[in-house]
């Protein structure tokens, strides 16, 4: 069992301080924000290092931060061996929303990333099948963005009541 701070320490030891920041709200859980450039390496390290062994990606959620004009992804992981959890985030600007895909680290990220792309429109680099998953392929816009405006017609059919 390791707390988020302890895991942060391990990460800083391995990769240096500048890529990680510890975050937390007034309530709830803490998280580590990882810069997108290092995400793939850090994730692989977190999975394989024997001090962390985060072998289970529970959830991958896209988030849109309209104030900062940023898109983010939150990863919830836990270790079935050491029984600790870790939440880490990556945030990228809306103008260049490129996030490395973690599909090769945790297979389950495959569909979750497709869903995040579908709903938020960030790009997951090196994803094997970077297509929409819930919406049809020719749907316009990404519905879960805060500034999303629903299209009026889809293939000539009205989308309003």
């Amino acid at each position: 069992m390791k707390s988020t701070e302890e895991i942060l320490e391990i990460l800083v030891q391995q990769f240096g301080e500048e890529h990680f920041t510890l975050g937390g709200g007034d309530i709830g859980e803490q998280w580590i924000t990882i810069s997108s450039a290092l995400l793939a390496d850090a994730a692989k390290f977190l999975r394989d290092d024997e001090r962390t062994q985060l072998d289970f990606l529970m959830c991958l959620s896209g988030v849109h931060y309209p104030k900062e004009e940023e898109l983010g992804v939150t990863y919830h992981t836990h270790s079935t061996v050491l029984r600790h959890k870790l939440t880490f985030k990556v945030r990228v600007p809306e103008s260049k929303p490129n996030i490395p895909s973690l599909e090769s680290v945790w297979k389950t990220a495959d569909w979750h990333e497709r869903e995040a792309y579908d709903m938020f429109g960030m790009t997951f680099d090196n994803h094997p099948n970077h297509t929409r998953i819930l919406c049809p392929e020719d749907w316009e816009g990404h519905p879960l963005r805060k500034d999303y405006v629903q299209q009026d017609f889809y293939q000539g059919i009205t989308t309003r009541e």
Binding site: G24, G25, D26, I27, G28, E29, W31, M58, C59, T74, H76, K85, T87
Partner: peptide
């Protein structure tokens, strides 16, 4: 609620619902 976030998971008949 105050500002913050959490991930809660429970065991449903199908598995981990978070």
């Amino acid at each position: 609620p105050n500002e913050g976030e959490l991930y809660v998971r429970t065991e449903t008949p199908r598995g981990e619902l978070g």
